[in-house]
């Protein structure tokens, strides 16, 4: 079994305050893993560590057996941001955004080759945005924007996809399309790590779940980890019956 992400006893602190400690996580190739936790539980911090934005004070990360920086140079990691972190009025077209997924594989001047254009076209087809490829980003709806950023990750042909709250504020059509795409990508042996607080989605299509609250509380197959007791621990001691409503 190929291991995509191996995080071993990760500790991250910001100026002395601990954001994450002793977090260990192993993601095999071809899986969808839901990352569940409260705001401030360390989900974003884990993403930042996996994209090299923060340096762990202890522990190590291997992606496809490589150090983070090396894996990034190999185009192994794609990060799909929360739309809130992006300036939507930025003067770029949908096509430009998706083409940015190819930059890492291009030469220094980033001049697209035929193969890059094909990859972009293909990715746009898969998220059903090909018709809107010349639209500026500002003319898209929230769901279409999410799909554009997902297309960028697909065009990059990364084997590890990190998605920050992909289901936040999207329409039903986009949600369905994204879920289908995740399953396709999983079958192409990609590993997908999704941070979410929508518990029903986790039940529906995540193979694995990791519960986070400053550390990894529980990790494993969805059916085993997704117990009311575990969830109540992850959400800071709410009684299990409060959460039961959200986990059919």
């Amino acid at each position: 079994m190929t291991i995509r992400i191996a995080a071993d006893q990760l500790c991250v602190d910001y100026n002395g305050s601990v954001a994450l400690y002793d977090a260990s996580l192993t993601l095999p190739a071809g899986c969808i893993c839901g990352m569940v936790g409260m705001n401030g539980a360390g989900k974003t911090t884990l993403f930042k560590a996996l994209t090299g934005f923060v340096r762990p004070s202890r522990g190590q990360i291997r992606i496809n057996g490589l150090k983070v920086a090396e894996a990034q140079r190999e185009q192994a990691v794609a990060y799909v941001p929360q739309s809130e972190g992006i300036d939507c009025d930025f003067p770029v077209s949908v096509w430009d955004v998706v083409m940015m997924g190819r930059y890492g594989s291009m030469n220094l001047l980033r001049i697209p080759r035929q193969s890059d254009r094909l990859a972009v076209r293909n990715a746009l087809e898969r998220v059903e945005l090909l018709d809107l490829r010349d639209r500026p980003l500002s003319a898209l709806s929230g769901g279409q924007r999410k799909r554009a950023f997902l297309a960028r990750a697909i065009a990059q042909r990364a084997s590890v996809l990190l998605l920050d709250e992909p289901f936040n504020g999207v329409d039903v059509r986009t949600e369905k399309l994204m879920a289908e795409l995740f399953l396709q990508l999983r079958n192409q042996s990609c590993s997908i790590l999704i941070s979410t607080h929508d518990l029903s989605n986790v039940r529906d299509f995540c193979d694995l779940v990791v519960l986070i609250n400053k550390t990894v509380l529980a990790y494993g197959e969805t059916s085993e980890v997704f117990t009311p007791e575990n969830l109540s621990q992850a959400f800071g001691g709410l009684p299990p019956d409060v959460l039961r409503g959200q986990t059919p």
Partner: peptide, 9 residues
């Protein structure tokens, strides 16, 4: 999107 720039190396 500096985060993406960073994550593609």
């Amino acid at each position: 999107d500096p985060t993406h720039a960073r994550s593609i190396g």
